[in-house]
Each structure stands twice: as structure tokens, then as C-alpha cells.
Design a protein around this nucleic acid. Structure first.
Lengths: 112, 112
DNA sequence: ATAACATGCATAATTTTGTTAGGCATAAAA
DNA sequence: TTTTATGCCTAACAAAATTATGCATGTTAT
């Protein structure tokens, strides 16, 4: 079983939420945050992350700025006003989805 | 936001769990169960369901039998021994994944 | 009668979204 | 000096869904 099946389709929600929690992050940092925050049970590959970040940026939800640190460039992302709204929306939608999923999996037919 | 993003990647787990709960079901019935069980918030389209069912059957997790009811054929599915094992495995894996996902989304960096 | 909707199965074409596999560069550690 | 960590990225491919159909029977509404 793949480690992070549940993230499938929720990657952008996770990204937005990480930024909501931390204010300003760069890509590599996010991959570490997910690995650490899940105690190694999940990971976001960079090949999945960067396109997702670019998509959110293009969608006008994120502001960016780049910085040279220790001789390497970092591209920082943070939520703008629209991003904050969208973040909240996606979070509650996800929580409702999880609740629905739990219900479904306990569902028993009437008159079975 | 799509209604059932969270099911993405977890469809087979949901199917196995429905069969675990109800013992014996046919495809159309499953689509209704999901719609009812989630109060319309989620659905499994038949185009997603049937290939998934066939795949689980091919994987040797489900036994089937067909029945003519009210002039229409129904193909019933149920878990066999292997399917029951797999159902339990996938359920606990999914629950752990959800727990990890929740952790990640609350994750805050040290030393911010 | 007949059109629309519910039941019941299924597949084909397309899109979304991820993985696998790379590339490039700097710095630190073994 | 080779490996590991940091840091960005894309291309080719695969998985898994959605959209769009198709077919057939039975029931309900017009």
C-alpha cells in the first residue's frame, strides 16, 4: 500500500494548510515538514510538490519571493488574501469529506 | 470543489468496507449506499465503480454470483477469505493515513 | 401512448494527478 | 572524494478518476 494515498487529490489542501500554519515556507521545507509531521509515514515528492505550488501561484492564491541562503536560492511562498480564504474553504471541505468517508464505511443497508 | 476528492485513491477500500458491512451487494446498490450514507455529499460514479470491482475480482478478493431480479440481471459481490483480510488491512491503513493527514495539517515548524 | 426517470450492467476517450527517473547546483560530512 | 543534504525543476509514464456514452427493462408521469 502506498504510504500517502490519502493525500492524493488533497495535495493542494495540504500545501495551503501548511502555509496557513507557518506563514511562509519554501518547497523543500514543505517536503520535510510532511515527513517530520507524519513521522515518516507520508511524504510529498518534489515532483508532485513543485507543479502543485506553481499551479496555486498561477491561480493567484500565493505570493512568492526568492532569497539567497547559504549560497542556494530559496523560493518562499505565502498565502495572500485569496489564498487564506481558499485555505479555509478547502480545509472545511476536506474535514467534511473525511467525516462522510467515515460514515460511508460504517454504512449498513436497511432491511439488510 | 469536487464532491468526493477524498475517495480518490481510496475507492477500493470503500468498496471492501461496504462489503464487509453488508456481506453481499451489487454495483448499483453500492452507488446508492454511498449517496445515502453520505447524505448526498459523495457519490461513486458507475464508471469508476465497475472497473474497480472488476479489478478486485481479478485480484481474487471477491466472489460473485449473478441473479435475475425483476427482469434485470444483478451481479452480486462478496468478500472471500482473502478479501476479508485485505479489507481489514486497508481499513487500518486508511485510518492511519487520515490520522497522519490531520497531523500534517496542524504541523508547525520548530523555532518558526 | 409516450416520454421521462429509475434500475442495472458496461466501456471508450479524456483529463487529472500522481510516480519514476532524471537534471543541475552548492555545501557539509564521511 | 564520494556520499548525503539542501534546493530548485521538468519529462515520460502510469494510475485512477471524470465525462460521455451505450444498451436494456420497468415504472411513473403527462
Amino acid at each position: 500500500m502506498e504510504p500517502n494515498k490519502i493525500i492524493r487529490g488533497s495535495l493542494s489542501t495540504v500545501i495551503l494548510q501548511l502555509l496557513q500554519q507557518n506563514g511562509r515556507m519554501y518547497g523543500y521545507e514543505m517536503t520535510k515538514a510532511v515527513k517530520d509531521g507524519s513521522k515518516g509515514k507520508m511524504q510529498i515528492t518534489e515532483a508532485a510538490l513543485y507543479p502543485a505550488l506553481h499551479k496555486l501561484e498561477e491561480a493567484g492564491l500565493l505570493d512568492t519571493d526568492s532569497e539567497l541562503v547559504d549560497g542556494r536560492m530559496r523560493k518562499y511562498y505565502k498565502l495572500n488574501r485569496r489564498g487564506k480564504k481558499e485555505s479555509a474553504l478547502q480545509l472545511s471541505a476536506l474535514q467534511e469529506s473525511i467525516a462522510s468517508l467515515q460514515k460511508i464505511m460504517k454504512y449498513k443497508l436497511k432491511h439488510g
